[in-house]
Simulated assay, not measured.
Amino acid sequence: MSRLPDTVRPVVERFVRLTAEHVPDLVEGVHLVGSTALDDHRDGVSDVDAVVVVHRRPSTVDLDGLRLVHRQLDPPRPFDAIYVLRSDLAADPSQADTVPFAHEGEVHADGAFEANPATWLTLRDHPLTVHGVPLTRDEVWCDPAVVRRWCRENLDGYWTELLQLWRAVGADMPDDQLTSPYGLAWGVLGPLRLLFTIDTLTTTSKSGAGRWARDRVAPHLGPVVDMALAVRSGQPVVPYAPPPQVWSDGADLIEWVIGHAASLPPNAQR
């Protein structure tokens, strides 16, 4: 656990203890993904995200036990997880059987969004095993065409809808959302992560995507990327322009990402 931030380590250790108590013999391994695995964890902002490999598909009794585990974990810190068989990791996650998941302290029997190609790619390229047998790169599925298609569909669906919302109400957004890690910074850096994966066929953190994109975006979008990175890092931030202009630049950035992603070859890495 040498890469774990000091604030994350006790949460992981508590999770392992609680699962041993409430769902004995279920958990085979715990592998962190998200900002912790990508060296971008921010205390007070980042959740702890995990792929938990289990020995069996969780039963109703197991799910009840997992509910006890997550209710005792959250608070003090969100510990979000998906529960998969080791064999699930060898195949396209969209083809997996029912995948239970926990989000914000609540356990659900199926519908795990995080069972997706980007999560599998993080497991493959940036493994951070904190309990059990580490995963090897060859154990984790990767189909470049499917990964890139999934990222493009995410941009064309979710992020296009968010773009339309920003265009409609951005000028009326509360000013504090400009400097919140869940506001402008999240909306700017999130789609850049997808573009990074389409272009490089690997994953990076929100901060990593912003740094990578800084010299690639259109020049007038550089300041909004810089501001998003500063907010993400926890620095004091003074908006570089009046709020309506900053929100407009953020919307332009999302639109640029969607258009640039569509222009890249569907299967070839640049």
Rank of each mutant, 00 (worst) to 15 (best):
211 R>P: 01
178 L>I: 13
130 V>L: 06
137 R>I: 05
267 N>H: 12
228 A>Q: 05
232 R>M: 06
117 P>G: 03
205 S>H: 09
255 E>Y: 00
34 G>M: 09
32 L>N: 00
168 A>R: 14
40 D>W: 00
265 P>Y: 02
74 D>S: 12
140 V>S: 03
173 M>Q: 15
211 R>M: 09
11 V>K: 02
84 V>L: 12
175 D>C: 01
144 P>V: 13
123 L>W: 06
172 D>A: 14
34 G>N: 06
235 Q>H: 10
22 H>C: 01
162 L>M: 13
246 V>Q: 02
242 P>S: 02
81 A>Y: 04
25 D>S: 13
160 T>G: 08
97 D>F: 06
62 D>Y: 06
113 F>L: 12
135 L>W: 04
227 M>E: 14
156 D>H: 14
49 D>Q: 06
89 L>D: 08
245 Q>I: 04
149 R>S: 12
97 D>C: 03
126 H>D: 14
247 W>L: 07
54 V>W: 00
62 D>T: 05
216 R>Q: 13
137 R>G: 07
232 R>V: 07
5 P>S: 10
83 Y>E: 09
255 E>L: 01
120 W>I: 12
262 A>V: 05
219 P>D: 14
184 L>C: 09
45 V>G: 00
95 Q>T: 15
210 G>F: 09
73 L>Y: 04
158 Y>H: 14
233 S>P: 03
147 V>C: 08
226 D>G: 00
262 A>K: 11
110 D>G: 12
248 S>V: 02
127 P>F: 07
17 R>K: 13
228 A>G: 07
148 R>W: 02
182 Y>D: 15
132 G>D: 10
9 R>C: 01
55 H>R: 15
214 R>E: 13
193 R>E: 11
157 G>D: 14
7 T>Q: 12
207 S>F: 05
180 S>I: 11
181 P>V: 11
58 P>N: 07
97 D>G: 15
96 A>E: 10
185 A>Y: 03
